[in-house]
Simulated assay, not measured.
Amino acid sequence: MSSELRLKKLRGSGGYIMATVTDEQQMKGNLGGPDLFLAPIGRLNDDKITKHFCNTCEKEFEGPPKIEFENPNEEVAENLVLAERGQYICKVCNASIAEYREFKKPNEEGEIGSAKPLNANASTAPTVEVVTAPTVEVVTAPTVEVTQPGSAALVSSIEGRAVIDENANKVGIVKQVGIDASTQSMVLVITKNDGTEGSIPWVSIKKVGEVILLGKPEEEVAVQSGKCSECGFVNKDESKFCEDCGTKI
């Protein structure tokens, strides 16, 4: 994997920043769509950030925003510790541009156990309503590949993973997967940010990876002929190099 730094736009719920990131950081920030998000990447050094945009100010500013963070080292589940939480803040109006949380496993070889209440003031998801959990029949958590939720591929358990809404806000942590007794449909049972329990219909999950991303599952899109993989410019079919950035097609 290349270690070359690239300038990218990283979005948050209250704006975005322009920063140079590695390929590994880009993969963390990619939650399944064309945009990259700050929340999964975490804290970046000031010298990596060139600009920031605040939705409240409706203006782009040169340089990095303020970054405030703390290290609670709070156990949020068995073998899962909240090592750091912080936010990117506009230097002009002090509005939050993005929030992030970094988790660590004290025992890398061990599994993540039952979730515990998390004392955090994260914003409630505006696009997905997390309701009180109905009576559910608990089943073994499915193991899924990092792909669309409907995939039948197998991977590690998703218990203990963060649940992120479409605006990159964390709404809770996966507790278990169950079956809604009234509809016989699969649901994701989570521990919400306030420590209470809730459930989310499985069909509301967009993608499963290091975090659980909520939203409508993406449909596969055919690769457009002549489209540059680097800058997205659509070239003529016979082009061997991108007419915009020069990358080999």
Rank of each mutant, 00 (worst) to 15 (best):
E219M: 10
G29P: 10
K116A: 07
R43L: 15
N235P: 12
V146A: 12
Q176L: 01
E218P: 00
I158H: 07
G215Y: 11
G178H: 07
P64Y: 10
G14C: 08
P72R: 07
E210I: 00
F61C: 00
E218Q: 15
E58F: 09
V81F: 08
E109T: 11
T135E: 14
T140I: 12
K206H: 09
A125H: 09
L118C: 13
F53T: 06
G215H: 08
A152D: 11
V76W: 05
K248I: 02
W202P: 04
V189P: 02
K170F: 14
F61M: 00
T140F: 00
Q224G: 06
E60W: 02
Y16H: 15
H52P: 04
I200M: 05
P134R: 10
Y100V: 13
G33Y: 10
V171R: 03
L36T: 02
A83Q: 11
G14T: 09
E210T: 13
S204H: 13
G215D: 10
K175A: 03
S229A: 15
E238C: 06
P34H: 14
E62V: 13
E68T: 11
V136A: 04
G42Y: 02
E99K: 13
M1V: 15
P149S: 04
V163D: 03
C242Q: 01
V81G: 08
I158G: 00
S156W: 10
P126Y: 03
T191Q: 14
E58Y: 08
Q148A: 08
V81Y: 06
R101D: 13
L5F: 14
G160A: 04
S204C: 12
K105W: 08
A222H: 06
T140M: 01
N121F: 04
K9H: 13
E102I: 15
E129S: 14
E70Q: 09
V131L: 11
V234K: 14
K48C: 10
S114D: 15
G110M: 02
G32T: 03
D180G: 03
I67E: 05
E109K: 15
S114M: 08
G226I: 14
C228K: 01
C245M: 03
V163K: 01
L5A: 13
C242N: 00
N193H: 08
D244P: 00
E24P: 05
L213C: 12
Y16G: 02
A168I: 05
N71M: 12
P72I: 09
V221Q: 14
G150F: 11
I164W: 07
P34W: 12
T124A: 12
P40W: 00
V81A: 01
V76S: 02
G178R: 02
P217S: 09
G215T: 06
T56Q: 10
F103N: 01
I164P: 07
R161M: 06
E68S: 11
I205N: 02
I179D: 02
G198S: 06
R101N: 13
L82M: 05
I212R: 04
K206D: 05
V130P: 03
L214R: 03
L188H: 04
A98P: 02
T196Y: 06
G150C: 07
E74W: 04
G246D: 01
E4M: 12
G209F: 06
E210A: 12
A98Q: 04
I67Y: 06
L44E: 10
Q87N: 11
I212Q: 03
P117C: 08
R101V: 10
S229V: 12
I112V: 15
E219F: 05
G195K: 01
T127V: 09
V211W: 10
R11K: 15
